[in-house]
Amino acid sequence: MPIFHVPEQSGEPRDKGGFLFQALAWVLLRVVPKASPDYEKRLALVEYWLVEVNEEGAALREIGFTAAHQPVLFAPTNRNYGLWTDSDRVFSPEEFTSRNDFPFDATWNRLYGQTSEGARSL
Results as ranks from 00 to 15, higher is better:
91 F>L: 08
42 R>P: 00
83 L>S: 06
74 F>E: 09
88 D>K: 12
67 A>V: 14
38 D>H: 13
34 K>R: 09
23 A>E: 09
45 L>C: 06
84 W>K: 02
85 T>E: 07
18 G>F: 10
34 K>F: 06
82 G>C: 02
76 P>M: 08
60 L>N: 09
45 L>A: 02
19 F>W: 11
118 G>C: 05
75 A>T: 03
29 L>S: 06
34 K>N: 03
86 D>A: 11
117 E>L: 12
109 N>R: 11
43 L>D: 07
80 N>S: 06
72 V>I: 11
49 W>D: 00
53 V>A: 04
36 S>I: 01
101 D>V: 05
6 V>R: 13
81 Y>D: 09
52 E>A: 02
30 R>N: 11
54 N>C: 01
105 D>W: 01
63 I>S: 11
37 P>C: 11
56 E>K: 07
61 R>A: 03
6 V>Q: 07
113 G>R: 09
29 L>N: 10
44 A>G: 09
57 G>F: 01
46 V>N: 02
79 R>S: 02
46 V>F: 01
73 L>T: 04
32 V>W: 07
119 A>I: 10
101 D>W: 08
117 E>K: 13
69 H>T: 14
105 D>M: 02
5 H>Y: 15
49 W>K: 01
60 L>Y: 08
18 G>M: 09
16 K>Y: 12
60 L>I: 10
89 R>G: 08
62 E>Y: 12
43 L>E: 08
15 D>T: 10
101 D>I: 02
30 R>Y: 08
8 E>N: 15
98 S>Q: 13
87 S>G: 12
20 L>I: 13
94 E>I: 13
26 W>P: 00
23 A>T: 12
29 L>I: 08
80 N>D: 06
114 Q>P: 00
75 A>W: 01
83 L>T: 02
115 T>C: 05
76 P>F: 03
120 R>C: 03
70 Q>R: 14
6 V>H: 12
93 P>K: 12
115 T>H: 01
37 P>L: 07
45 L>R: 04
31 V>L: 07
23 A>R: 13
90 V>A: 12
100 N>C: 00
59 A>P: 01
72 V>N: 06
59 A>I: 09
25 A>L: 09
4 F>W: 14
99 R>H: 05
38 D>I: 08
27 V>I: 14
79 R>A: 01
88 D>W: 13
17 G>H: 11
51 V>S: 01
94 E>L: 14
6 V>A: 12
74 F>V: 10
69 H>E: 15
116 S>C: 04
54 N>D: 04
47 E>R: 10
96 F>H: 14
46 V>T: 05
61 R>P: 00
46 V>E: 02
48 Y>D: 00
43 L>Y: 04
31 V>P: 01
95 E>L: 14
45 L>P: 00
63 I>M: 15
118 G>E: 11
13 P>D: 15
116 S>A: 11
99 R>F: 04
23 A>P: 02
95 E>Y: 15
32 V>T: 05
82 G>F: 04
7 P>C: 13
24 L>D: 13
76 P>W: 03
31 V>D: 03
51 V>L: 03
19 F>T: 09
61 R>G: 03
64 G>P: 10
61 R>Q: 01
85 T>V: 00
32 V>K: 06
114 Q>E: 06
111 L>Q: 04
15 D>H: 14
70 Q>M: 10
43 L>R: 07
46 V>I: 12
87 S>W: 15
49 W>R: 00
95 E>M: 15
60 L>S: 09
117 E>Y: 10
103 P>H: 05
